[in-house]
């Protein structure tokens, strides 16, 4: 039996309507809550939450909350206790914060200062004691002062970092996956003065995460 064209059109219209309604219902079922947390060092921070329709909220106080629905963004304030209670698993599961250790060199040489030698020992202990914890990733970053070309400083700083990795290896640490980075003179601790050697900038950073 053949259906009349008008019946087909009606049926298709109904079907399309049903599909559109189902998709809309499904898509709009979620809202989200975004909560700003304080930085560990207490420095100010902010996040901007923007809905797909352009409504925005700026959160700049720790524990301020933005609630986002498809067309709107609302904000309110909660507190540390409520947040740590509701999201306890997120606090428990967060990986440990990276730790940084700074090493300095003796004047004009490639030997570490005695204090820095002690720090290397501390790093070795941390790595040795942590055998059962999540594997530590080691990144060793060399820095150079401003004397010399960028390419030279990149290479020099990288070699400095590689030397420290060699030291860790010699003390029994598995360094096969250690990252060796030479950041050249990009990150001076003390501002550069043209043509002035700044020993504090000739340093190596060991970062564990």
């Amino acid at each position: 039996m053949r259906m009349k064209n008008s019946h087909i059109a009606l049926l298709l219209g109904l079907l399309f309507g049903v599909i559109v309604i189902l998709v809309t219902l499904y898509v709009n079922r979620t809202r989200e809550r975004v909560i700003l947390l304080p930085q560990p060092d207490g420095t100010p921070s902010a996040i901007i939450v923007q809905s797909k329709t352009g409504a925005t909220a700026v959160l700049d106080r720790p524990y301020s909350v933005a609630t986002v629905a498809p067309k709107q963004v609302g904000s309110e304030q909660t507190d540390e206790i409520a947040v740590k209670k509701r999201y306890k698993e997120l606090f428990d599961a967060l990986p440990p914060r990276p730790r940084a250790f700074l090493l300095y060199f003796e004047t004009g040489g490639t030997r570490l200062t005695p204090d820095s030698e002690k720090i290397v020992q501390v790093v070795v202990s941390v790595l040795t004691d942590a055998k059962d914890l999540p594997p530590f990733e080691i990144t060793v970053i060399g820095h150079a002062d401003e004397i010399g070309t960028d390419d030279l400083n990149d290479e020099l700083s990288r070699r400095r970092a590689a030397a420290i990795v060699g030291m860790l290896k010699a003390k029994g640490i598995d360094t096969t996956r250690a990252s060796i980075v030479g950041r050249g003179s990009r990150e001076p601790l003390i501002p550069h003065k043209k043509g002035v050697a700044e020993e504090k900038n000739r340093r190596v950073e060991i970062r564990l995460k």
Binding site: V34, T43, I48, V68
Partner: peptide, 17 residues
């Protein structure tokens, strides 16, 4: 997220759907 994008200025935060 499904409804939003979040931009940051050096921060930590939590998102819950």
């Amino acid at each position: 997220t499904n409804n939003a994008t979040i931009g940051i200025r050096g921060t930590e935060f939590i998102v819950e759907v």
